[in-house]
Design a protein around this nucleic acid. Sequence first.
DNA 1: TCGGGCTCCGGGTGG
DNA 2: CGGAGCCCGA
Length: 739
Amino acid sequence: MSNRVSKNASSEDWLVTDLNSEQSAAVSCTEGPVLILAGAGSGKTRVLTYRIAYLLQNGLAEASEILAMTFTNKAAGEMRERVAKLVPNRMSGMWIGTFHSLFARLMRREGERLGYSSNFTIYDESDQIALLKKVLSDMHLSVQDFPPKMVSFRISAAKNRLLLPDHLLEEAENQLDTVVANVYRNYQNRLLELNAMDFDDLLIKPIELLQRFPLVAGYYQDKFRYILVDEYQDTNHAQYILLKILAAKHRNIAVVGDDDQSIYRWRGADIRNILDFEKDYPECKKFRLEQNYRSTRKILAAAHSVVKNNRQRHPKELWTDKPEGENVVLLEVESDLTEAHHVVARLIREFKGGQRNFYDFAVLYRTNAQSRVIEEALRRENVPYIIVGGVKFYERKEVKDVLAYLRFLSNQTDAISFRRAINYPARGIGDATADKIEDFARLQKLTLVEAMKRVQEIGSIQIRTREKIESFSKLVQKYASLKSELSPAELAAALVDEVGILRYLKEEGTIEAANRMENVRELLLAIAEFSSQNGRSATLDDYLQQVALTTDLDTLTDRTNAVTLMTLHSAKGLEFSVVFIVGLEEGLFPLSRSIQDPPALEEERRLFYVGATRAKEKLYLSWSRYRRRYGENLHSMPSRFIKELDPTTTDAESTLRPFRIERRRSAYHDSVDSPMPNYEDQTQENLEYRVGMRVAHEVFGKGTIVKIDPGGEHAKLLVMFDTAGKRRLVLPYAKLEIL
DNA sequence: TCGGGCTCCGGGTGG
DNA sequence: CGGAGCCCGA
């Protein structure tokens, strides 16, 4: 998309030259509530960014009076970048970011009123589960009777409905409800004691704050003269209430969304928020962006022919002045293995036939488990690929372990991080001992570090164990005092070195341990990058907050010359020239559990719509008559979505002729005479390594370089090893031999 | 306290 | 089939 605007152009010029008439109407209608129904690929980010630029350019608002919220860091970053291009140097003081990061900021400023100090820790799901297990055990409840995951799900649902433990207790209908309500109360009390908030708290605690302190509410209501919200269809009830409170004074709230792309219902998103916006703000102005700038007519028509079967939606149909394009290709195959083979064969054919790079292709699936056969087929053909999702970087054990130390230094009452750190690497302090320290700290109202200092006052701890605790305590105190002198990067590097984490891993000598070492190094590198990007004023607390609110999706760049494999959910907001959606079978897509549940089925249909509209030029859909799931070869029927497709937009192709592929764990493939052209990446630096080069690693064996992240001496390599799979290596440590 | 073996179960997951 | 989590023995 052309995005150029000369600095001197008046705002009226942009409205005419860069926007279509509906877009420019939506941008310039600044006063009062605005609902912008923006279909897939209709330029919604453009409208949001131009709207912000328009407000600034015309002196309608100072930067500090604008609040712009998105769901993902990636979307927030993109918005920030694009506004900066339109109106350079005007963004200082603007609140632009994700819901969670903006409200975390608000709580760091104001949370003291609710009993949190500004360095509170943000707990992710696994921290939540760990804390819940503690609470359950304190209440003498067994995890068999009350699985922490189930309890956590119910607590989260209650929080999203803004129900307090007392409310839950009142409406309890059985013993389980009562127990959940009581666990909820204790869990919430513990979070406060630990100075921690979970993701839900980042939304509901601000509500509590704004409701209990009208002066604070008044300040922010006054401050945020203009509010903009992206992906409004995915807001949950808490977010809805927050927006309602903040917009109460000026009522200048512009929301952008597409009910057809609401795919987070199971996570509390309430599609009624967008469907009922006009009821909440009867004076609102409504704009519809129905011109699509992304896909061919065939692709749009096919996608529409499916989603129009939903009952819960604003009726609408996108149009485009793009060419008609090719029909959607529907592949019927025999098995998941042949599906993978045919998808990859088609992909290679498209690659060779057109002016396309590998990053123009995506393979999308409903479940992560489907990625493996595709991966193996791509590896066999030596096609570079990246997988988005799966086990996330910051959720890996070794990464969480290192972060636990840093989090504990930052918040010395954080018992969850304390538990991880105190016995990693194993230093002979067990659960029973850690419990005693925690109990003592709670009883005496001490931080855990203070409690450890007075370990001799805690009864029934053996002298040997006490010595171990003292040494751990000294370590923590040492680094806590260094916190103000060293940058987060220096601190983390010194700590990892002193604790000996890399040395322990090296001793293990396994492939897994080597991989964990790489992850620890990459974490240190990420902290260093954070320090250099944010300058010396960036604190450890700042880093930890950023990490807590970051996911893998944010680091996905389009420069990697590789095919993207990911779930349909991860694909939202992205676009590719050629898209393959695989596994279109009843029970898989739509998933079996949604088939009996009409709203869930509609959500599956929207998911299909999201996937299909990612494609710019060509869309492939495939289904397999047999699929291996749970170790069995299950017979499948084609997805109902296939039957709903407008037949004039598709070409069905059967590939059921006999075709055998061996099922192998990992296909060793020597690429000396690779059938593929070289994967030249023009962006790489002048390093001794090149993309496509064959290398050998002492532990991982032989492999091919798939990607090089420049960064001077800290460059990172992504290597696809023949047997060990894809590995990320940090150059100074990589010790690769060029073959 | 720790690691190995065994059982159980199966979905997507922004921040 | 494969991964996660639990239990039990060393």
